[in-house]
């Protein structure tokens, strides 16, 4: 039995030398910390093949959902930093860290690049009387703490309405609806009044099943020219869910460089913006240096926000 570890070590060394010879020589696991079919999953299932082309290896999307996206984050953090595990991140990593849901933060990873940005939209149930953002605000001022908002508590869909709350000086009542799909069901059935959504729900808005009240981008989007921005309405909130790729800290330089180059090539692929449009998402590429700065700024903003909302646990 003593021979086994030795043989194993030998095999491992052999495998390691092979791996160094030609990275990637086996499929790379891209951990998406959310269920399949969600926005993040859909975006990366579109992006992975484009990145693959430049990388010359296979990327397999592995959904590790659960616990507000922190289960996958933990899994990615504890994976061997060999370049064969990468992590699909979005802004919730900061908020779940500061609200104390998880111990994983972006500093446990090496940035690869930022891929996309999805502006948030204030969305109302068709059973509500509001015709636009103004009537919502008036109603909210008249009935503080009575308008129900569905949200994944402590995550982006909670932070966004909370920012609107602060900027407009109103008060909502939050009800836990984790995930976009259950939130949209509840909006349709009139079980909640408001929720954050994005352009992926445009079809339902066009069919009158949902009402888009205002968008949190800096200017109106051509897809929904009739939806005003919050800024136009005097609410100084700009919010989007930003998605990027990270690798576990300690990933070899050579592998990182290859991944970064492939990510850049994938994001610049001519077909990518068109494909993303279908998912209500804008392509937003940032190189590793710019992405690092972005993460730092985002992290600070989230910390401040958590503090202002009374949710800061660290």
């Amino acid at each position: 039995m003593k021979a086994l570890p030795i043989i194993a070590a030998g095999l491992a060394a052999l495998a390691a030398s092979l791996a160094q010879a030609q990275y990637p020589d086996r499929p790379i696991k891209l951990i998406v910390p959310w269920a399949a079919g969600g926005d993040t999953d859909v975006i990366y299932r579109t992006f992975a093949p484009l990145m693959q082309k430049a990388l010359g290896g296979t990327i397999v999307v592995a959904n590790v959902g659960g616990a507000s996206g922190t289960k996958g984050a933990k899994e990615a953090q504890s994976s061997p930093p060999d370049g064969y595990t990468i992590f699909a991140v979005h802004d919730s990593i900061h908020s779940t860290y500061y609200t104390g849901v998880a111990d994983v933060n972006y500093t446990d990873f090496e940035p690869i690049c930022l891929v996309s940005s999805t502006p948030s939209i204030v969305t109302a149930s068709p059973k509500t009387p509001w015709t636009d953002m103004k009537s919502l605000l008036a109603d909210a001022k008249a009935r503080p703490g009575q308008i129900t908002v569905g949200a994944t508590l402590g995550s982006t869909s909670h932070f966004f309405p909370a920012m609107v709350e602060q900027a407009a000086g109103i008060k909502f009542k939050y009800v836990s609806y984790e995930g976009t799909a259950p939130r949209m069901n509840a909006l349709l059935g009139g079980h909640i009044d408001l929720a954050e959504s994005n352009l992926t729900q445009k079809g339902k808005a066009d069919a009158g099943q949902l009402k888009f009240l205002a968008i949190a981008s800096d200017k109106r989007l051509p897809e929904v020219p009739n939806v005003p921005t919050l800024k136009e309405l005097g609410i100084d909130v700009e919010y989007a869910v930003n998605r990027g790729l990270l690798a576990p800290k300690g990933t070899p330089r050579a592998a990182l460089d290859k991944l970064r180059a492939a990510c850049a090539a994938g994001a610049r692929d001519a077909g990518f913006p068109e494909a993303m449009k279908k998912h209500g998402t804008l392509v937003r590429y940032l190189d590793p240096a710019a992405y690092t700065a972005f993460l730092q700024r985002n992290d600070k903003e989230n910390k401040d926000l958590a503090k202002e909302l009374g949710m800061l646990k660290r």
């Binding site: 659960g66 616990a67 507000s68 922190t70 289960k71 933990k74 849901v101 508590l153 836990s176």
Partner: peptide, 19 residues
Amino acid sequence: NDPVLGQERLTLGIPFLSG
């Protein structure tokens, strides 16, 4: 794990139960 907030509870000290 509490399904509403994702907070840990009753993990009995077993790490993989936290999810």
